[in-house]
């Protein structure tokens, strides 16, 4: 059986440190040194004040499911064997939201506001932060 490779993140100059940190099993987000806004996704400038003076801050890796969907029909052959899988927007304890997969549980048990924590998926060329449920 032929396996189709999953699309891997193609880091940009702006997002490279985010993916590098994931490779070290750290979840990070840019924080503006000027106005202190913490944000995701990584952008070249602070969305609040346009400053380019940004720092990378390590996050707790804990948050809650803001919303989710269980994909039941794959739109790409690389994901055919993954269905059903959970796409979720996780709101981190520190505030920013990101898109991720919730893994390590029955997709039918995922709920909005469910507490989750980061786990790192090293199976591809680029390590990808994912989330799993925690008792909460």
């Amino acid at each position: 059986m032929t396996t189709v490779a999953k699309p891997m993140p193609q880091p940009t100059a702006v997002s490279q440190p985010y993916w590098d940190a994931a490779g070290e099993h750290r979840l990070v987000a840019p924080r503006c040194r000027s106005c202190r806004t913490l944000f995701l996704y990584p952008r070249a400038t602070c969305p609040a004040c346009l400053s380019t003076d940004l720092d990378w801050e390590q996050l707790s890796g804990r948050g809650r499911v803001y919303t989710f969907t269980v994909v039941r029909q794959a739109a790409h052959p690389a994901f055919t064997e993954d269905v059903p899988y959970v796409l979720a927007i996780v709101e981190l304890d520190e505030g920013p939201r990101l898109l991720t997969n919730v893994i390590g549980c029955d997709p039918a048990e995922v709920r909005c506001d469910q507490p989750v924590e980061v786990v790192f998926d090293d199976t591809g060329e680029v390590t990808v932060p994912k989330f799993q449920p925690v008792a909460g």
């Binding site: 940009t12 997002s15 991720t100």
Partner: peptide
């Protein structure tokens, strides 16, 4: 590969 050219897709597409 997913992403680049201001698409931010590297943060979405790899998750499916």
């Amino acid at each position: 590969g997913a992403g680049g050219r201001g698409s931010y897709e590297e943060l979405f597409v790899p998750y499916g």
